[in-house]
């Protein structure tokens, strides 16, 4: 996550412009980060329209709270955290996460690493979106955002065990989907 440079303005200038409420700099920030943040929203949302709503809500939050950014860490990381929290807040009241029984199925047996390489980004994204909200959120937070189970538990208000079990189940289902999809793809290629 490098520093933002857009149309000759560096990150500090863009942030200062956004703090002053200048629409020109707000649009610059949007043009710089919108694609990355929209992919985050698509991962947490189950459909395209919901991802659009999350993107809009997230950017409004960023512009509102940009004065709180102290410049200590990465600005893009700070923006990303806002989007993740926005997505979690969006689904918090809708879904209750519960602990699953440990069935020992941490990974799909027939899964192979080669299957993943045959798929495109869009295909994997659709598979992630097919997961239920609890699985998807924990998977995103642990695998892509790099949160620990303790942090996920604090963020979602669940125990570490619940987070682990949700992640294991999500991984199992995703590997299964990838294997099936890859199998169909392989069959179609062979045919």
């Amino acid at each position: 996550m490098g520093a933002i440079i857009f149309q000759g303005f560096n990150e500090t200038e863009i942030i200062q412009g956004c703090r002053n409420g200048e629409r020109k700099f707000q649009q610059m920030l949007y043009n710089t980060l919108s694609a990355k943040m929209f992919s985050v929203c698509l991962r947490y949302a189950n459909e395209y329209n919901t991802a659009q709503d999350l993107l809009q809500e997230g950017f409004v939050k960023v512009y509102r709270n940009i004065e709180k950014f102290r410049g200590e860490g990465s600005f893009e990381g700070w923006v990303r955290r806002i989007f993740v929290n926005t997505a979690i807040e969006h689904y918090r009241k809708q879904v209750n996460l519960y602990a699953l029984l440990d069935t020992g199925q941490n990974a799909y047996e027939d899964y192979h690493d080669n299957a993943l390489e045959t798929l495109k980004y869009e295909d994997i994204l659709k598979m992630i979106q097919k997961l239920s909200h609890g699985y998807r959120t924990v998977f995103n937070l642990y695998v892509i955002e790099g949160y620990s189970h303790k942090e996920i538990g604090e963020l979602l208000g669940i125990s570490e065990g619940t987070s682990k079990s949700q992640l294991a189940r999500a991984r199992y289902l995703l590997q299964k989907m990838i294997t099936d999809n890859a199998g169909v793809g392989m069959q179609s290629q062979n045919a």
């Binding site: 694609a35 992919s39 690493d113 980004y121 994997i124």
Partner: peptide
Amino acid sequence: KIEHIMNENSV
């Protein structure tokens, strides 16, 4: 691998 694919691509 999933993390790499997700972070490398954007929509």
